[in-house]
Design a protein around this nucleic acid. Structure first.
Lengths: 148, 148
DNA sequence: AATTAAATTGTACTCAATATAAAATTAATA
DNA sequence: TATTAATTTTATATTGAGTACAATTTAATT
């Protein structure tokens, strides 16, 4: 916990942005929770420990951290921007039944196209949608539940 | 133009949704313009020919057409849902300089991961971001313009 | 052509995200 | 470690894409 925190401090210094308690906590939350939280979730969780926390602060920092390349936005679904640590190369799978987002490894460097000659590629995203194994089983057992 | 229109009518009938003039026009617009237009763009363009057109109608139909699988939403950027014909398997490249979205062919069927055993995959999206060739040239000539 | 079902329209509304400006905190300098 | 300058936080107001709703109009069915 402590060492992680110090690592994050280092990361922030490295990128030349000042380190406030709120910013550190937000970054730490995303680092510790691999659930791809939304701004709302981060706010709600941190608000318990930091009662004065403002939502604007969460949004500000999510943008700042995205700008310096520490985190990135995951936008599979409408009206649901989630955040994930950058760096690890993986795709995102969203289960349309339970709503969970799963990471899956994928060699993104292999992804290319003849159509993109002359294009400078800075970012690659791979999003899948479907049903996760748990929900496949659930649906198999109870086919009546056709909700969502 | 006429044949295309009739094809679209057929597509709508095939899916069992009734064909209103507005719906047909919206689908035709997306079919004819491969610019991945937003709801706003579609509304503005069609509003000239259909002065009574309502934005709600555009949104309603975009959802309906998405539901029946004729079109699909492209959500590379925040607050910018664009629409594209479904069926053709390709990735989307967004130029962060000019904002254009380019299609590029890609064998999406090849995309898999060992991590996804037991997952039912219904949809695959590939989004790239970067600079398109035209903007690469522009930026090369005028490096001062660091806007956006 | 009459009836029924579905779609359009306009308005009001929601809600995630942003803008703003004052207060507070962090960084930089002596 | 004070003091000043630069950021950040906070609270509030605002934006804008998208939705809900209820009345009207249009399309499908008999």
């Amino acid at each position: 916990m402590k060492p992680l925190f110090e690592d994050l401090e280092k990361e922030l210094r490295k990128r030349g942005i000042s380190l406030s308690y709120q910013r550190l906590m937000i970054l730490e939350y995303i680092t510790k929770h691999n659930t791809h939280p939304t701004a709302e979730e981060i706010f709600t969780a941190l608000n318990r420990r930091i009662p004065t926390l403002s939502k604007a602060t969460v949004y500000n920092n999510l943008r700042t951290l995205t700008d310096v390349g520490l985190i990135k936005a995951v936008k599979i679904e409408d009206h649901e921007t989630r955040y994930d640590l950058k760096g690890t190369r993986h795709g995102h799978f969203k289960c349309t039944n339970c709503g969970n987002i799963y990471d899956f490894c994928l060699d993104i460097d292999d992804l290319t196209s003849n159509d993109l000659k002359g294009f400078q590629i800075f970012e690659k995203e791979v999003y899948f949608k479907g049903i996760c194994p748990q929900c496949v089983l659930k649906k198999g057992n109870a086919k009546e539940e056709d909700d969502e």
